[in-house]
Design a protein around this nucleic acid. Structure first.
Length: 251
DNA sequence: CCCTATGTTGCGAA
DNA sequence: CTTCGCAACATAGG
């Protein structure tokens, strides 16, 4: 659920809280999706300091000693910094001796990844226009499916894809290689960067959850946008797209 | 009780 | 072979 903006704010706030803390213990509560055993995480991470923490696509990357610990939140993963609490649905935790960082997920899909493979797919906020344009040229599927597929560009999910396409005035089921690439590229950056700024301002200490109060069209409970446009809903497979009539359909 | 939410995976179809 | 579309999985909370 968490996409680039929420994760970016989370990463910044967590970094403030965690840099220079030493990992004293690790607990792997749910191992089925992890790429290492509890002993593997323990050996790599314990007695090492947190050097930095950043967002990479939809993952958080924590640099600990000479290792990278990636946390992938999937749909419902949440992070909490706690002292005495033991949050429900624990997946993994880093213990700093008193304070603990807990990854939880009621669907048990969130996972810790030790030393993830180096990333080759560019992030939506790092990708060059040239690369983005060439990637779109190769795709004949729905533009929305292209934007949300992490094999193309990383970090955008169902909700922000709707917001970006609304901003660009492009209908979600347009054919990817027919849409105005430059317009879409600009909207992608504008929407994501503005959301990071707004969430950062309104939730200066947020380390979990998401803030969708700034969304303009991905509004499951509303019939109209703030501008009074009727919100249309389309279901393709089980994914819903929210958009308005004025978004052009390129085919 | 039934429905909703959606990231990711994997398979069948084109 | 490649690419696309969709079903399947996970399950708390409304």
């Amino acid at each position: 659920m968490s996409e680039i903006p929420d994760l970016a704010v989370m990463a910044k706030n967590l970094e403030k809280r965690l840099v220079n803390h030493t990992v004293k213990d690790v607990v792997l509560h749910v191992s089925k999706n992890a790429n290492a055993t509890e002993n593997g995480f323990y050996g790599a991470l314990v007695n090492h300091k947190i050097k930095s923490l950043c967002r990479e696509g939809k993952d958080l990357h924590i640099e600990i000693g000479d290792h990278i610990l990636a946390l992938r939140l999937m749909l419902h993963g949440e992070l909490r910094l706690v002292v005495a609490e033991f949050p429900k649905f624990p997946i993994f935790e880093l213990d700093f001796g008193g304070m603990r960082l807990c990854l939880t997920d009621f669907q048990s899909q969130a996972r810790p990844i030790l030393n993830p493979d180096p990333v080759v797919v560019p992030d939506a906020l790092d990708v060059s226009f040239t690369f983005f344009h060439q990637m779109l040229e190769r795709k004949k599927s729905d533009i929305k499916a292209v934007l949300t597929d992490q094999k193309n560009i990383r970090g955008i999910g169902n909700a922000y894809a709707d917001e970006i396409l609304y901003d660009a005035g492009i209908a979600p089921h347009s054919i990817a290689n027919k849409v105005p690439a430059e317009k879409l590229f600009k909207s992608m950056r504008t929407v994501l960067i503005q959301a990071i700024e707004r969430i950062g301002m309104s939730d200066p200490d947020r380390i979990t959850g998401e803030n969708r109060s700034f969304m303009k069209v991905h509004l499951p409970d509303k019939l109209q946008t703030l501008k009074g446009e009727t919100i249309l809903v389309d279901k393709k497979g089980t994914r819903k797209s929210y958009y308005v009539k004025s978004q052009s359909f390129y085919k």
